[in-house]
Amino acid sequence: MPQATCVQNVTFGSTGATYTAGEKYNVPAALLKSYPEYFKQAANPKSKQAKTAENK
């Protein structure tokens, strides 16, 4: 699950989940897509491939 910061207090009645403004949560991606006005998604760190020595 992606990590996101809640920007406004919200409670989802279907799941009963309560999110508080300013807190970071692991939020299901479907919830982020459905309600982008409530969450600010954290920046994803760029993955770097580890440099390895070639086997000859």
Rank of each mutant, 00 (worst) to 15 (best):
P45Y: 13
A17R: 14
Q41M: 11
E54N: 10
K56G: 04
L31C: 04
Q49C: 08
A43P: 15
K33C: 00
A42K: 13
M1N: 11
K56P: 09
T18Q: 12
E23G: 07
A53G: 07
T15A: 06
A50Q: 14
Q41H: 06
F39T: 00
A53V: 07
A17D: 09
K48V: 08
Y19E: 00
E54T: 13
N55H: 14
S47Y: 07
N55L: 11
P36T: 01
K48G: 09
K40S: 07
C6V: 04
A50H: 13
L32Y: 00
Q41F: 06
N9Y: 05
K46C: 11
M1A: 10
A53T: 10
A53R: 15
E23V: 04
Q3G: 10
A30W: 02
T15S: 14
N26L: 10
Y25D: 03
Y19W: 09
V27K: 01
K40E: 05
S14Q: 13
K24I: 03
E54G: 07
S14T: 06
G16F: 07
F12T: 01
Y38H: 08
A30K: 05
F39P: 01
Q8L: 12
L31E: 00
A30D: 03
A43E: 12
T52I: 06
P36M: 04
T5K: 15
P28T: 00
S47K: 15
A4D: 00
K51L: 07
Y38S: 01
T5W: 07
